[in-house]
Design a protein around this nucleic acid. Structure first.
Lengths: 201, 201
DNA sequence: ACCATAGGTCAACACCTGTTGACCTCCAAG
DNA sequence: CTTGGAGGTCAACAGGTGTTGACCTATGGT
């Protein structure tokens, strides 16, 4: 009998079969991502995550050791950046903004990283690594990899994270309701400038 | 005797005088802003705030009722926007970015609002009100107050909050270390465009 | 038929949280 | 000198947290 009756979003096995360890691990990870994304690091409790996964809190500890390690596992994320060099140079900004919007909307992980990263150092470090370790190199490839690459990646971060913050986290009315195409039309040129314009100083 | 020996940042009265109620209220408010700014809403505890103020946690309740009301009091904030209409139209963006940087650096309140707003609805609402109720009207004054005013305010929010997030909260290396002037040079034109360019769609 | 084992539950721990109410203590006004 | 109130402390509450270890139970291989 299940006594932890939160919203049961766990994937139960098809027949009356018992759950595999890997299935449980996956169910926990999904539930963890959702809770961390919705509540942030401290308000997402092991108990609520376990309830969502349809198991006992002790199972979470069995599989992931502790809350910190659970978050580390749940916050694994790949930006899946497309190959920029195959794109027309003047569309880089728009395509990047579009890609970010998509990536944000079909995966809870970024939301979890942002909600947690504001008060949790490990999450903040992950977020930094996303831009320094994934976006940075991609930008370097098309600008020649100069020393300003990290700066450009950082600038793109300010605009894209700011967008996500206003649109998905704070739900600032006009930004949250803005159609995708309008967002891209407004922010595309900004990101384009950060990527390709010469240093203004 | 003081048994709550955290870092005592409280303003003690000059002589051996006893503290006034108002002095204590102020000490609590200052400590609260610092803690909320440093730790976010849930990790900033009444106990730690009281310790910083050099008093018993019960005093915090006496003066502010509960944690929620304490935050509401600590999160009171005025952007103190300058009179834009007195500025050259093409410097609006730069001046606004500069003003935000200053406002952010000499007052903990914005940091508290951002750190808390990500997981606390009341704080999020405050943040929305900042842009809708203070920045919005200021923009309306110089663009004629059209229906796109709220949208422009929102766009400015995405860039400025994104900057604050990366520079002050996440401490993204290249952004945190960037000199003020460089930040203004890069972001000024972006904000300028959001303020004065025609809708690109 | 047996039983090791993977999957899972349960009850408790030590600690921390916001919050409360009883109590103490100084000091100025009557 | 008394007294009353403002400023402050203390101990406890009820509930929630991460985490632990003992225990149960189905099931597939021998």
């Amino acid at each position: 009998m299940l006594t932890y009756g939160g919203d049961m979003t766990a994937t139960d096995p098809g027949s009356g079969r018992r759950r595999t360890g890997d299935e449980t691990r996956a169910a926990i990870l999904t539930a963890a991502r959702e809770r961390f994304a919705a509540d942030g690091y401290e308000r997402a409790t092991i108990r609520s995550i376990a309830a969502d996964a349809g198991i006992d809190p002790a199972m979470v500890m069995r599989y992931y050791g502790n809350k910190e390690k659970l978050f580390a596992a749940a916050a694994e994320f790949d930006l899946r950046l497309p190959d920029f060099s195959a794109l027309p140079r003047d569309q880089l900004g728009s395509k990047l903004v579009e890609h970010f919007l998509t990536r944000w909307e079909d995966d809870d992980t970024l939301m979890a990283l942002l909600r947690a990263g504001v008060t949790n150092e490990a999450a903040a470090e992950r977020l930094r690594q996303l831009f320094a370790g994934q976006l940075g190199p991609a930008i370097g490839k098309l600008t020649g990899g100069g020393p300003d690459t990290a700066i450009r990646a950082g600038l793109v971060a300010t605009q894209t994270l700011g967008l996500a913050l206003c649109r998905y986290v704070l739900a600032v009315g006009p930004i949250a309701e803005m159609p995708r195409a309008t967002v891209i039309a407004w922010l595309g040129p900004t990101v384009q400038r950060y990527l390709t314009d010469p240093d203004p100083t």
